[in-house]
Amino acid sequence: MNPELTLPHDGHVPEFSARPVWCGRDSTVIGAVRIGAQAWLGDAAVIRADGQPVILGDRFWLGHRSTVHIATFGQGTTCGDRVTVGRNSVLHACTLGSDVVVEDDVVILDEASVGDGAIIEAGATVFPRAELAGGFAYAGSPARAVRPVGQGEVAERAERLREGGTEGIGPEAEPVSDLDPDVFIARTARLRGRVGLGAGASVLFCCALEAEAGPIVIGADTNIQDNTVIRTRGEGVIIGRDTTVAHNVRIGDCRIGARSLIGIGATVAPGTLIADDVMLAAGSTTDPGQILASGHLWGGRPARILAPLDAERRTMMLRIVEGYRQHGRAYRKAQDGLTAG
């Protein structure tokens, strides 16, 4: 069984040392990816190597709606053998050893490393450049060692995670056609209801935009990255132009301004108002009705002001938006090539 969608990127095609044991619905593998034997990919699992390589060892297990990505101009992602990743987790430009268990709703960020035989407990965030030694369980945000673990417990937790994660994510809406030539909608993205997309916007792989009540309006050149879920049950969601919504974000009815960045694995609660020029750090949450003022880096659970939004951060945010404009054009071409073939 092969992934539902595989795409080349910049001349690189995904490589599998053997046919995966299982590939769920909408599972997606892109670019310079090498995957070992006996891989298991859940529903809406995304592995995307569009700038640096992703190298995954034997018996890699990726749960439903989890994402593996890279830092385009910086670092790839590498995992040893027998790595188990739960649901709705993100491995981003990091290095994991062998026999590592990453539970549900975990975010592991750029240049972090995790040693052999470690457990990252549910909901944890591993901060950039963190070095987590093997043989410990880690929890919290930032993730910290809470106790030593033996190989027997690691194997038991991995087995429990795999057994509990075999049930899929269930039926979703049918994908919609991408009618605007300046918009990219991934074939494995699911949009339902009143969804409006500005010119140059992109909705990447396995996203779910569900306008159950109010509309979802995405501004021009804004990118919605893999496995993000936006769902309205009230007034709707409006996101301004030139904004990045990173992987595996959860968004309820809210307003998000222009030129902002919502970090990996963040949760934006209903009623939140995020002003223009805001960065919300990875793994953060907002409280219902919270207002995030312009010109700041916000982070934490719930989010609070951490630092001014300096020139370096603003430049980085603009670079991401421009990079995703280019990704959108490249993915559209590759996806259209599949249709033509």
Score class of each variant (00 low, 15 high):
G24E: 04
F184H: 07
I256G: 03
L96R: 11
D221E: 13
V217C: 00
T28L: 14
Q75Y: 08
T315I: 12
L161D: 07
V68A: 13
H69N: 15
D105V: 01
A71L: 09
V176G: 09
A258K: 05
G76F: 09
A143S: 05
R301H: 14
G51T: 02
Q225I: 07
G51S: 09
L306W: 06
E156M: 09
D110M: 11
E235R: 01
Y324H: 10
P142Q: 01
S89A: 15
I47G: 06
G11K: 01
L109H: 15
A124S: 15
L338G: 06
E4F: 11
H12F: 08
R329V: 14
L306H: 15
G219R: 03
G289Y: 13
L179H: 04
I47K: 07
V102Y: 14
L261I: 04
L5I: 13
V83T: 01
D242F: 01
G57T: 01
C79A: 15
Q290L: 14
G168R: 06
D277I: 02
Q75F: 11
V176S: 11
R162F: 03
G323V: 04
D50H: 06
G57A: 03
G86N: 12
V217E: 13
G57P: 03
R25I: 05
Q335F: 10
E235A: 02
T232A: 01
T222W: 03
P3A: 12
Q52S: 09
E131H: 09
